[in-house]
Nucleic acid binder design. Structure first.
Length: 110
DNA sequence: ACTGTGACGAGGG
DNA sequence: GCCCTCGCCACAG
């Protein structure tokens, strides 16, 4: 809440707000944080959040709905497995019905 | 203090 | 419509 918190913690907080069975994009989170141009930072922040189990980074994909970060999820299909465990169908690295499952923090959290 | 980086996004050819 | 290039901005070394 305080601006004292770093950009990373902001990202973590939004990620925790992602509903079950839903996914969002890095850009959407960045935009919600007021830094739409820092979409890359969001993904990087997730990297640091890897140590935090409270941050469902597997629900965050790129704007294409592709599991770009899967490679960072332990080198396995863990990310895909986690998404499928939430009824999120994943075709390879592409999330099916991404548009329908897309959860925009700016729109949902306003 | 400076440089590099990086799980993206948008624009141009 | 696909592929390539540039920009971007906060954090780590």
């Amino acid at each position: 809440m305080s601006d004292n918190q770093g950009f990373f913690e902001r990202v973590y907080e939004v990620c925790r707000k992602i509903p079950y069975g839903r996914v969002t994009s890095y850009g959407a989170i960045a935009k919600y944080l007021g830094a739409a141009r820092s979409a890359r930072m969001v993904g990087w922040a997730m990297n640091a959040s890897h140590n935090l189990e409270d941050v469902p980074a597997h629900r965050v994909v790129n704007r294409n709905g592709v599991l770009t970060g899967k490679h960072h999820f332990g080198g396995s299909d863990a990310m895909k497995q986690l998404l499928e465990a939430e009824n999120v169908k994943v075709e390879g690295l592409q999330v099916e019905n991404f548009k329908d499952l897309f959860w925009d923090p700016v729109q949902e959290l306003s």
